[in-house]
Design a protein around this nucleic acid. Structure first.
Lengths: 141, 141
DNA sequence: ACCCTAATTAAGATTATTCTTATTTAATAA
DNA sequence: TTATTAAATAAGAATAATCTTAATTAGGGT
């Protein structure tokens, strides 16, 4: 997903283009390691010395809701990080030693959520799933 | 799980009994709706006017790690809540309208985590899973 | 080009949670 | 009972994230 694609999606949904938003998207589409809000702020400080954290959080929330970025580390173990989503809905394996994250090959929830929810007559809106442990580099044995 | 059982587990693991800890456990074993840290503090204010939030958070963390209490609302949607664990490891359906939570009948992760992790040569330590949506009372249709 | 309006912004307050530090205390051994 | 020590505590600082408010601005229509 490149910058143009993201901007097109935003436009279609009626969001405005602001310089701040453009730059945040710019940083994210570059890829690489998932970024924290703090890191994004640091990277954007020269261009927007008064960029407020709230603007970054708000923009990220919009992008999350549109499925453009995904979130890693909800679990409160470390600071939440964000990265451009690689298309399909998916979850992460998060290493509690080095902090790196790895995409799961597939999302095991689709059928399961339906089944579990049916039992409780519960209308599923979203689900959160994350596995924490040690990655191949960090595992001891 | 009653208070004695909890205290026995703590004793076995070498934790100390403090009046604060006893009271926090007392409130939790009563059952009922899952409690937030704020609610716990309010309920304990008359007995311990200077109880610090940190003490509550610390005690809850210990109890979580021992599997004695479980955590609801990790997802950052609302304040995290805690309740005595009903034995087996499990997850929750959380209503985004009324905020109530419901236990899932089983944990769908056991086999899945193993499979997913194997593919990545990842050693699983724990996982987080939560379904958000509307409960039977709150769903519109 | 100019105006209008709803969306977006910065700033700062607020809340939830964790961390640091110095003090207190529970459990254990003498 | 007293002394010892490791664990637990309160207080307050620090961090992450959200909310409130008033000012600014992008985009659409004139």
């Amino acid at each position: 997903m490149d910058k143009q694609q993201v901007l097109t999606i935003l436009k279609d949904r009626g969001y405005k283009f602001t310089p701040q938003r453009r730059e945040i998207i710019e940083k994210l589409v570059k890829g690489g390691e998932p970024l924290s809000v703090k890191e994004l702020l640091e990277q954007l400080r020269d261009k927007f010395p008064e960029l407020s954290p709230d603007t970054v959080y708000r923009t990220l929330k919009v992008l999350c809701n549109l499925g453009i970025v995904c979130t890693i580390g909800h679990q409160g173990k470390k600071t939440t990080r964000y990265k451009i989503s690689v298309g399909l809905h998916h979850h992460h394996l998060v290493c509690i030693s080095c902090g790196r994250s790895f995409c799961m090959a597939y999302c095991p929830m689709e059928g399961i959520a339906r089944t579990l929810a049916q039992q409780a007559n519960f209308k599923v809106v979203e689900h959160a799933f994350e596995i924490l442990g040690y990655c191949s580099d960090c595992r001891v044995n």
